[in-house]
Nucleic acid binder design. Structure first.
Lengths: 156, 156
DNA sequence: GTTGAAATCCCAGGTCC
DNA sequence: GGACCTGGGATTTCAAC
């Protein structure tokens, strides 16, 4: 992982569909070694995949909810059951294990408040061990970046 | 935006680099109309772009912080200044306008707690109008999905 | 006007230097 | 890391419904 790798990552985060030729020019390599680096980054799991960046509102899902979850007991059994359930719920885009007050933070995408209510009733409340749910809604988005703050100043 | 469009979006969220040929087979179209639909979705802004999905930890940024921001005054001037500043700070990946207790929610990516402290000191505190900062740290990730919960059961 | 098909151009991926 | 080569996909054009 030297400076060139970070440059490649940055460029592919900005445009994951650019051709290897374009990419190689931008990072100052010839196509072959550039492609080799990309493949290595993919195999190493640094690049996990590629995805289309889609506007949720245009797809009928304009409402983002952030949900803080507290479990009633902190046993392995409860935690694993919760996490397994979370992975199976499509409305939950992200789930983080948090420090501090609550145990988990969920990012949930729904059509509207009614959809969120339905999500809570038919999904969250059916999970065993959920003690508290604290919801916050996003009215809008100021920024949504796919590019990491990688320090490109130094190499190695 | 019919059922086929949603299928295309779903497939391109799962793999944004698949060939138009693969995509057309998966959604049950021939390549030409499939490509036209993709281009239309791009022009309409439904598909905003394509990005590599990268593991933050592998890039030396294993720490995700969620920061709740409250502004001291709720004037247009303060809000616009804050939002403009946010857009220029690379460590802030996402910024949502929130309802309820706090005004904004930031998703911040840093190397460690020291990096976060530096971020707060040299970035957040230099923004005018920030009254309160409430930070929460993510220890780990249970789920991180790029696929929206699109209802593919109906068309139109 | 929208869909399927063919031809050309250009890129990806492998191999060797 | 760079250069060549080949198979395959993207893109444009054209025909058909």
């Amino acid at each position: 992982m030297d400076k060139k790798d970070y440059q490649i990552i940055r460029e592919l985060q900005k445009d994951g569909r650019q051709t290897n030729q374009e990419l190689s020019e931008r990072v100052g390599l010839s196509p072959s070694p550039c492609l080799r680096r990309v493949k290595n980054l993919e195999k190493a799991g640094v690049i996990r995949g590629y995805s289309a960046v889609v506007d949720p509102g245009e797809c009928g899902l304009p409402t983002t909810a952030f949900v803080r979850i507290t479990l009633d007991r902190h046993t392995e059994e409860v935690a694993q059951g919760f996490e397994e359930a979370v992975r199976g719920i499509d409305e939950i885009l992200d789930c983080y294990v948090m420090s501090g007050g609550s145990d988990y933070l969920l990012r949930v995408l729904v059509a509207d408040l009614k959809g969120y209510e339905r999500f809570v009733r038919t999904r969250l409340h059916r999970i065993k061990g959920v003690a508290a749910i604290d919801s916050g809604f996003a009215y809008g988005t100021v920024k949504q970046s796919t590019v990491f703050p990688l320090s490109l100043g130094m190499d190695s």
